[in-house]
Design a binder for these strands. Structure first.
Lengths: 158, 158
DNA sequence: TATTGTTATACTCTATAACTATA
DNA sequence: TATAGTTATAGAGTATAACAATA
């Protein structure tokens, strides 16, 4: 009989989901954010979409790129968000093919409370770590995300 | 005009997805695991399902609980995995209502390579951290996940 | 011709409610 | 009656391919 969990000295321990700690953490973060979104009557994806628009309107193509979905999928996401009056489509002066997606007033209100609550919930998730650990953890998370973005850009260029 | 990203001294910086570092990290982990699953012709959810069965067969109810989905949703997940010959439904001696879900031979092969590749990919994701940082990071991730599981059990009991 | 976005289609994942079979 | 699981239904999210309009 094989022993699936005994895969060598560097084998990541099987956690709650049978995957490495990092995968378990991601599942936990996801469900935490999903709960917050749910309390604000948003889907998790709508939460992400609205958060991306906090800094200003974006074109469909750019939004799709940042969300990591195909443009055809984004059409549906924006359709549903627009139907719920969270965002609006605007024309781009000078290019009649393009579409700018912007937060509506309702979307702006919704996303500010959602963003604050999500940040609080994720903060609370780290409650068992010391202040120093939390800071280190966030810094390392940011490092990892940044280096991943960097290699993504690099492979897109090269 | 409001400045959505300026929400006070403890405001988590808007990252790649407009959410805190932890949310960005979760998105990154998710997409990394999804890529690995895709290379093995699995959906990410099938990957999780199979990993949970690595330690042995589980009942539908227990599997649903561990995956964090409703039992009705699990029926579909198991249907599709069974249709692809990754898992099989077995009878539970002594309770003819119950169903045990077990890895098939094909599922066992599939999950071992998937699990190893996912672990490697997540390891590689931490490549920009030092050895000590990686260890600390994994330990903190495990702590956070464990304390979340603990409070989940506590609220289920109390 | 190339680019921007939408439509058409098909799937996975998910929840809720109603149901069947068994305990 | 209570529990284990399925069926029915509806909707979100996703990809691929084909398309329209504009550049």
């Amino acid at each position: 009989m094989s022993e699936p969990t005994d895969c060598g000295p560097s084998c990541p321990t099987l956690g709650a989901t049978g995957l490495p700690e990092l995968a378990d953490l991601a599942v936990l973060v996801r469900s935490t954010v999903a709960d917050v979104a749910d309390r604000h009557d948003l889907t998790p994806m709508q939460g992400r979409l609205l958060c991306l628009l906090l800094d200003g309107p974006l074109r469909m193509a750019e939004l799709a790129r940042r969300l990591g979905v195909e443009k055809a999928a984004l059409t549906g996401l924006v359709d549903r968000a627009e139907r719920r009056s969270l965002v609006e489509r605007r024309a781009v002066p000078g290019d009649r093919r393009a579409v700018l997606v912007a937060l509506s007033d309702a979307g702006t209100s919704a996303v500010s409370v959602f963003h604050a609550d999500a940040a609080d919930a994720l903060d609370a998730m780290l409650g068992d770590l010391t202040e120093e650990e939390r800071a280190a953890f966030r810094r390392m998370a940011a490092t990892v995300v940044a280096s991943a973005s960097a290699s993504a850009s690099a492979s897109a260029v090269g």
